[in-house]
Design a protein around this nucleic acid. Structure first.
Lengths: 238, 238
DNA sequence: CTTGCCCACTCGTCCGCACAAGTAACCGAG
DNA sequence: CTCGGTTACTTGTGCGGACGAGTGGGCAAG
């Protein structure tokens, strides 16, 4: 008995209609069959049809007008995928070659500001590099407040096999909720230049990583050599 | 007869719960009252409560777990606003001080590639600068295929009072639909350095602007001095 | 012709009910 | 003690029915 699960009926109705829109059977501007007709065609209750149509409307596939009908809008609306340097930094699994150093240091001014603590408060600084073949393709520093790092392996120079985010989740049940990222172009610092080799312009990313309550879990800084990295973004214009 | 409209009940339930989340009565992580309890409290049917809760879940206010309950997620959070250098470039109205030069030139290789035409095909190149007080804060070049510029003022050195996007829309009914943007850090070119004054690192933005059918309306390149610009982005983690 | 009403059709909302399925705590058999 | 079943909760899905309200066309009175 394989017991495969059929998706719920309202979802079946949704995907059927989406398919017809994609196929052009229902073209943009067309009126969809009325709820009553769809009830007959799919053999389900009106509750089910209405739920499917209202969900499609919320997702932007169709528009519903009281008293007139439902109309194809035809723009499924792509949610604008984008590369997230801050996110991939906390997702990436570590290996021994990644770790440059891990130390307890006084917080630099900009890090302290982002954490909302006093300058020179002790924090854990975790320096890492990413490699592409022979070249170092990124120099990263992650700063953790002491109370976050407490009880974790974040202050130890051993590689985290499943990435920082997983580690925080598994060890202290801390959930990463959102990331604030600021990006600029600058020259590499002396330390970064030593690691990166090339001394041209770098993309500088500063990010703060928050839990659902807004608490700062960590602050991170990434230097991406400009000759190796392009960040691509596609977006709809209103 | 003032005929005031009462909002639908499911919306009333929604706003009541949203208010309690904002007030902290329901704190992030808390379990909401069960559907049955809410039915009793608000004096409505379960259908109504479920619709309110499912809508709140879709909007990200709460999370619902089958068999366990509904839990406050506590993020009204807007859908990640971000600066779009490519978009603001085609939106911005021009004035006489913005225009550096407008000329018909053979397409550089990278521009030709993005347009999908042969290298050295003639195109219109429109060079502009943006100013912040005394400093030049951005050097922009917009390349237009000849057939796009034909019949417009894009190939004339006069300022466009309503921006490139409006002009294309008004004169040739061309609609900007989406933008593909690629961003990197680099050193300014000689021409850009002359315009920008400072010769440090710049954020280089290359963007292609498309109409709904995917046709390239223009290609643009922007150089933003790293010491003047930060691009900020906030995003939810799944 | 114009006006106003009626009617058929649309979607919007709401109810009560039913059953499925996931969760967690309790409790007794072993 | 551990294991497995029972039970009381939770949410997920689905139905049929009901009434309200907006829309647009037909139609008869004026």
């Amino acid at each position: 008995m394989s017991m495969d699960f059929a998706p719920p009926k309202y979802a079946q109705v949704m995907t059927a209609i989406q398919q017809r829109i994609r196929d052009g059977e229902y073209a943009p501007g067309d009126m969809l069959p009325s709820e009553t007709q769809l009830v007959r065609e799919f053999g389900v209750g009106r509750t089910t049809v209405v739920r499917a149509l209202q969900t499609l409307a919320m997702q932007g596939w169709i528009e519903r007008e009281h008293g007139r009908g439902s109309f194809v809008k035809g723009r499924p609306e792509s949610p604008a995928e984008r590369v997230r340097p801050g996110l991939s930094t906390v997702e990436h699994a570590e290996s021994a070659e990644n770790i440059v150093s891990v130390a307890r240091v006084p917080a630099p001014r900009h890090v302290a500001t982002l954490m909302g603590v006093d300058e020179r408060t002790p924090v854990i600084a975790r320096h890492r590099v990413m490699r592409q073949g022979d070249r170092v393709s990124a120099a990263e520093t992650l700063w953790f407040p002491l109370e976050i790092a407490l009880g974790t392996d974040l202050d130890k120079p051993d590689p985290l096999r499943h990435g920082v985010r997983q580690h925080l989740q598994a060890v202290k049940h801390l959930r990463v909720d959102h990331v604030t990222e600021r990006l600029t172009a600058r020259k590499p610092t002396k330390e970064e230049a030593d690691l990166l080799g090339s001394s041209s312009a770098v993309l500088g990313v500063m990010a703060t990583v928050h839990d659902p309550a807004g608490t700062v879990l960590l602050v991170l800084s990434v230097a991406l050599p400009g000759d190796l990295h392009e960040l691509e973004d596609v977006y709809q214009v209103s």
